[in-house]
Design a protein around this nucleic acid. Structure first.
Lengths: 140, 140
DNA sequence: CTACATCCTCTAGCGACTAGAGGTGCAAGA
DNA sequence: TCTTGCACCTCTAGTCGCTAGAGGATGTAG
């Protein structure tokens, strides 16, 4: 088995080099063995783990959630109820975020459309920001 | 004119007390005058400025963008082209974010629906995370 | 006069990295 | 063999926009 350097691991997993070291430092990835010259030497399993983490991060899971998901993955006989709960919670968050961003989008569109491209004192962008009562955006 | 304490300013603007101090510290809000006992004394104009900042933050504008918007507001004879550009850029960001979150939502739904609520080795949540090839989510 | 809320400054912490300094290892070409 | 130059190492500090807490001063109501 040939040694996988950190650069190679980064390339294969899509996680940046300093981020790989960071994940090791917070215990998300086991410390790999070292070469004679003290350089990290990764196993193929580490690459899979890094790819797992990367994908989960892309889906917006927090590090602590990923930590839980990884311990579940490490023991395949456990119930997947926790994994399911984590994914469902994330789904709810994402749905909420989409709703709120859609409201923001509408407000920004009103602002941009209303801008006459003249002077600031006629600009709807500034006006709407200054007077919350004018906007359609509701809170909490 | 009666003095407005920081607590009162916070209540009226909807910005929290430590955040008001923070905005002052980064120069987003001018340092107000002080009482004999060294307590901040705000003017009504400060409340409007805080409300402006709060609303802009709720719309997701970054502090530096708000700084620009505030200098524009301070000089109403300027062209509003910058304000328009900032708002448009933010709109593009929001639209992009909505698109990406919608893709995430679809992927999370697939994961959650596919979970048979059994053991981890049959769980689609873990499986999809481990093998990116199985998912519908595309990047960049 | 005494409680007690509110105010003050200052430092440190959050999450998830990212950047930079200052140094070592290693492989390939001359 | 030497040298070039990239990739690697550790460590600290910075990013953003706050938030929390310590430790103390002020202001107000009873």
């Amino acid at each position: 088995m040939k040694k996988i350097t950190i650069g190679e691991a980064a390339r294969r997993s899509g996680v940046k080099v300093p981020t790989v070291r960071y994940y090791e430092s917070i215990g998300l990835l086991a410390a790999p063995s070292r070469s004679e010259g003290n350089q990290r030497s990764f196993e193929p399993a580490d690459i899979s783990r890094l790819a797992f983490i990367r994908h989960a991060r892309e889906l917006g899971f927090e590090i602590e959630a990923i930590r839980t998901l990884l311990t579940l993955q490490d023991d395949p006989h456990q119930s997947c109820a926790s994994a399911d709960a984590i994914a469902k919670a994330r789904l709810v968050e994402v749905e909420q975020r989409i709703r709120s961003l859609t409201a923001l989008k509408a407000e920004l569109e009103t602002m941009v459309e209303g801008c006459g491209h003249g002077r600031v004192d006629q600009c709807r962008v500034i006006e709407v920001l200054a007077d919350h009562g004018q906007c359609t955006h509701s809170h909490h």
